[in-house]
Design a protein around this nucleic acid. Sequence first.
RNA 1: GCCUCAGUGGCGCAGUGGCUAGCGCAGCCGAUUUGUAAUCGGCAGGUCGUCGGUUCGAAUCCGACCUGGGGCUCCA
Length: 610
Amino acid sequence: MCNFFILLIRIKLILISIISILDHIMSKDFNQLSPRAKQTYLDNLRHSTAHVLAEAVLKLFPQAKLTIGPPIEDGFYYDFDVKKSFTPKDLKIIEKEMRKIINKNTEFIEHEVTRTEAKLSVKNNSYKLEILDSISDNEKITLCSHSDGNFEDLCRGGHIKKTGEIKAFKLMSSAGAYWRGNEKRPMLQRIYGTAWESKESLEKYINKREEAIKRDHRKLGKDLELFFFDELAPASPYFLPNGTIILNQLYKYLRELYKKYEYKEVVTPQIFDTELWKISGHYSNYSENMYFIQQDEKEHGVKPMNCPGAALLYKSKSHSYRDLPLRLADFGRLHRYERSGVTHGLTRVRTFTQDDAHIFCTTDQIAPEIKSFLEMLSESYKTFQFNKLRFTLSTRPEKKVGNEKIWDNAETILKNVLDEFSSEYSIEDGEGAFYGPKIDVFVPDAIGREWQLGTVQLDFSLPERFNLEYTAQDGSRVNCVVIHRAMLGSMERFLGVLIEHLAGAFPLWLTPLQTIIIPIADRHINYCKSINLKLKDSGIRSEVDESNDRMNAKIRNAQIKKIPYMIIIGDNEIKKESISVRTRSKNDSNINSITNLIEKLNEEINLRSI
RNA sequence: GCCUCAGUGGCGCAGUGGCUAGCGCAGCCGAUUUGUAAUCGGCAGGUCGUCGGUUCGAAUCCGACCUGGGGCUCCA
């Protein structure tokens, strides 16, 4: 009996090794493909896995209606119209069912059908019928089947050969999603999954995801005591001393750039009579996102944007063409009511500060101003080593102010600047603001979700609504052009993305505590204090760890807090009047004198190196 | 706003109807004075998100609300 089990186990082991060898051969083939062919194969694989998912769901929940199941980055999803929602337990059961289908290793067969045949095959499914209606007459209509014809789905195509090719997949999560992405249409149940050409790739992906989750700014914000949230002010961050140091360093940096790029900074009010929001158009276009306050029998609006205030400030005196371009920076705090369910850590909040500025200029100055802004932006993003930037150009929406000619002109200017700027960008048709076209900059967070940071927008509406004029050379009164621009965007959002980008290990110039001095024994504390004094005198943020811990524990604590430099002091250092330096990255440091260290620290800070 | 999951000391978690709600870290006190990622011992800290209901009895079951997470929608 015992021998029999051993035999069984051996057979199983042999089978497993055969499978892994096959897997290896498969992935070797895959690795020889061109990057483009790789992507096509993965798309086909993922889309095919979605088909298998659909069959499994139908088997377990026969009343479910199929809708769509496309491949997405790293995986796929399938939307079902089904009464119940899927629990994590359901996902496990579905996954099991999928494995059964995969083990049968049946072929995916695509075949073309007539519209009538297609309609007949999906006659009870209003979603598929709607899809059919959206397919034009000159397009092919195809059905795809697998499991020897036991499962069939209306589908554009792009599959792998057999279900057995699906070697490595996992259902990740379920969520509600509106049909056709429209919140007025029914909510479907979506299942997200991931699929890869080999088990190794799947594992790699899952590990990478887990690592990324560790960099979540909400977790690091707590661990490093940067900020917190409280339910009495939902979606409104409190910045703790550590987080505030970082923010202030960012402001300091921005003000240096403003000096270089010739901006002037102003401060404007927080709350305005509703009258202002009526003039600016916010009252009719943006009031559902605004906070209102009733006072002295008057309605007031808390500012969601700085521009109307900036307009009033511009109007406070008369301007000549000689004043332009006038670049006014405003770090005003904004409040926007965001619907519950859309807020997200620091990256989507209800109160925030932008590194906002308004540039009042002539038409001729638009192009050079935008170019100069993009230069400043790229200079600053380089400082943070953001290398995965994505630029978009958003063009005229349906609801807009200004005539077609003005828009043509504005869009052309932005396009030319972007072309000259030689960065890749995509055009988002109809996504511009009602008052003008814009360029946006997107940066991904740890798990790849993109956040809009920088933005530059032309505005034809504001000068008209507020009558923002200047006196031209010929003495005539001309409306100026307003350019809204934010470089880092919202400081809160920027910090959130930055934390994830750096995994909480801030460069020396930003980090809350730059050096920590660790005495090995209490008798070393006085010497540590004298070192600390020297560092602080040179403007370094430094502390002595006087806790009762052992040196090892102090080093560990400093590592966890990601403090860039640890200075360790024992008998040897005191005897030689030197210091011993350890960096958080454990790079060897030959520095053994405090003077040299201070010099090096200041250099690193001034260069803002990462 | 919609779908869904969750909420237990500062943080991370255990506890699925029945003794006084546990554990680790952090904190405080004491001992220890140590050479490059955790020294030992003790103490203190929670009306289990809020309100209501079911029950002899609720952290645990039900409902509403609040807050947060994952999505969808939205995002001047």
